[in-house]
Amino acid sequence: MKNPFENLDKVMEHRVRLQIISVLVANDSYDFNALKELLDITDGNLATHLKALEREKYISISKSFVDRKPNTRYKVTERGRTAFKKHIDALEELIKQQRK
């Protein structure tokens, strides 16, 4: 049998990134401030993790202006959604295996 460790996604092994992807998979899109409030982390911390996810092309970004204030919205890409699913499957597999 294949080793489920190999299926774990390196980028999503960090919990904040995993949480960001979870939110984006459950919602059409989410903006920076709403994410910050939801995850309860600092601007810099969130920005770093978003960058990491963007680099992997797991999320896409659209910038616009709402009431003249810049508004940045994030969406999960198909690539990100697939990676997320694979990562959860691997997590479940690992938990199952170690319960035996």
């Binding site: 919990r15 995993l18 949480q19 979870s22 939110v23 998979v25 459950a26 919602n27 989410y30 939801l38 995850l39 959860i88 997590l91 479940e92 690992l94 938990i95 170690q98």
Partner: peptide, 24 residues
């Protein structure tokens, strides 16, 4: 190492569920 990791994985799964619900 695995045993410690295991509870971590469970926490990961819990945090996914929590975030999805809280965001929706």
């Amino acid at each position: 190492f695995n045993m410690e990791q295991n509870s971590d994985y469970q926490k990961d799964i819990e945090s996914i569920r929590h975030m999805m619900e809280k965001s929706v």
